[in-house]
């Protein structure tokens, strides 16, 4: 089953008179439980594409279906609900809520988006804290933990609602080599365990090494698809 299907997608940004064609005729399919990365030079359109997958934006042309939903048909509120239900986000600069503890941050989507009862929330959050190795840090405020720890907390937060897809735009860009490596292998492990598809945009060779499928984007065009998993194949698109 395909989680995301793009059919001839184009995205044009218009600022005043200026038109920027950020994505040009992109077609692809992404299926469940994959570990995927988009690479390409700066300004090639990676973030733009991830924003579309994340239902944060709509394509200018073409059909984009995320979990069988044509997202250009959703309004602002429906998109917010859709994101809360099906998607997880990991940001380059973590974007954890600074006034909440690590535990409360991970709990946040369950309270504010899913409104799960307390007991189930606790079970879920503690399980995830354990999975990302942050149990001992759970009562700290965000300002008291390191970048790597922040990103691990963010991974746990992205997974609390059991999303089908987790989107991560440059998740390791603000981390040192070692933390980046830990974060990457953690995500890979969790991806296999919970069956969530992770989609990255990155320059980072470490990520590229770890992923199953690498898409290359250049100047808004999808130029290459590389499947590195056992039964993978390499192709030019």
């Amino acid at each position: 089953m395909s989680l995301i299907s793009c059919d001839n997608i184009t995205k044009i940004y218009q600022t005043g008179e200026m038109k920027v064609k950020a994505l040009k005729n992109i077609s692809l399919e992404i299926s469940e439980s994959q570990f995927i990365s988009f690479i390409g030079p700066s300004g090639s359109g990676k973030t733009t594409l991830l924003n579309l997958f994340g239902c944060l934006d709509k394509p200018t042309e073409g059909l984009l279906k995320v979990i069988d939903t044509d997202i250009s048909k959703l309004n602002y509120i429906e998109r917010a609900k859709f994101r809360g239900k099906h998607l997880g986000f990991i940001f380059q600069n973590f974007n954890l809520i600074p006034v909440l503890t690590v535990y409360e941050n991970i709990e946040y989507p369950l309270v504010m988006v899913k409104s799960l009862p307390k007991k189930e929330r606790e079970e879920k959050v503690l399980g995830l804290l354990d999975a990302v190795g942050m149990l001992d840090q759970k009562d700290k405020m965000i300002s008291q933990i390191s970048g790597g720890q922040k990103q691990r907390a963010a991974i746990a937060r992205a997974l609390t609602t059991d999303p089908k897809i987790v989107l991560a735009d440059e998740p390791t860009a603000n981390l040192d080599h070692e933390s980046a490596y830990k974060v990457m292998s953690l995500m890979k492990k969790l991806s296999k365990e919970v069956g969530t598809t992770f989609i990255f945009a990155t320059h980072d060779p470490k990520i590229v090494k770890e992923v199953d499928i690498v898409y290359t984007i250049e100047d808004g065009f999808l130029t290459k698809r590389e499947d590195k998993s056992e039964n993978g194949r390499q192709s030019n698109v």
Binding site: I77, K81, F82, R83, G84, N95, P109, M112, R157
Partner: peptide, 8 residues
């Protein structure tokens, strides 16, 4: 980020 996570 709150909004991205689906906070209404």
């Amino acid at each position: 980020s709150l909004s991205a996570m689906g906070t209404l």
